[in-house]
C-alpha cells in the first residue's frame, strides 16, 4: 500500500467525522460515524498496520451496531412514527456509502502510487499480543478490568426499576 492511499483514506475519515457531528438525526450521525471508522480502518491497512486495521473494523464498527441498539430502544416505535422515520431516512445511506466507496477507489484503479518504506506488516500473532497484554502492560489490563467493574455496577443501578423494594430497604 502507499502513503497516498493512507492520506486519502484519512481525509475521507475526517470529512465523514465532521459531517457526523453536524447531523441533527442520530441515525444519520451514526451511519456517517460508521463510514468514518471504516475509512480509518482503510488508512491503517494502507500503513501496513494490519492488526490495528482489523481491530478498528471489528471493535469500532461493531460498537456502532451496539449504539444502534440503544437508538432503537429509545425511539418512538409507533406506526406513524415509523412511517415518518422511514420517509426521513430513505436516503440516509447515500453519504456514508459514498465515503466508503471513495475510500476503496484507489485500490480498484491503482491510484496513489509510491511504495511505502514501512516494509512488511509487523507480525501480530496472539501469543505476542498476550505476552504484551499480560507482561509489560499487565497493570493497564488489570486497571481496565477494574474500570469495567465500576462501570458495570453503575449501569446496573441506573438500569434497575425503582420499585417499592428500594423504599423498604431503608437503613442497614
Amino acid at each position: 500500500m502507499s502513503w497516498g492511499f493512507a492520506i486519502w483514506a484519512a481525509t475521507l475519515a475526517l470529512a465523514a467525522a465532521v459531517l457526523s457531528v453536524t447531523r441533527a438525526s442520530a441515525v444519520h450521525a451514526l451511519l456517517l460515524l460508521l463510514a468514518s471508522l471504516l475509512a480509518l480502518g482503510a488508512a491503517f491497512f494502507a500503513m501496513s498496520a494490519n492488526f490495528a486495521g482489523v481491530i478498528q473494523l471489528l471493535i469500532y464498527a461493531g460498537a456502532v451496531v451496539a449504539v444502534f441498539v440503544f437508538v432503537v430502544m429509545t425511539v418512538d416505535a409507533s406506526e406513524t412514527a415509523m412511517a415518518h422515520e422511514r420517509k426521513l431516512l430513505r436516503s440516509a445511506w447515500r453519504w456514508p456509502a459514498l465515503f466508503v466507496g471513495l475510500s476503496v477507489i484507489p485500490i480498484l484503479f491503482g491510484i496513489g502510487g509510491g511504495a511505502m518504506d514501512a516494509g512488511a506488516p509487523a507480525a501480530a500473532d496472539t501469543r505476542e499480543l498476550g505476552l504484551l497484554l499480560f507482561g509489560d502492560w499487565g497493570v493497564a489490563t488489570e486497571l481496565v478490568a477494574l474500570m469495567l467493574i465500576a462501570g458495570m455496577i453503575g449501569v446496573r443501578h441506573l438500569g434497575r426499576s425503582l420499585g417499592p423494594r428500594l423504599r423498604e430497604r431503608g437503613r442497614e
Binding site: 486497571l143 477494574l146 474500570m147 465500576a150 462501570g151 455496577i153 453503575g154 443501578h157
Partner: peptide, 9 residues
C-alpha cells in the same frame, strides 16, 4: 477514568 467512573456510579 478509574477515579471518575466509580464516582459517577
Amino acid at each position: 477514568e478509574l477515579t471518575t467512573i466509580p464516582m459517577v456510579a
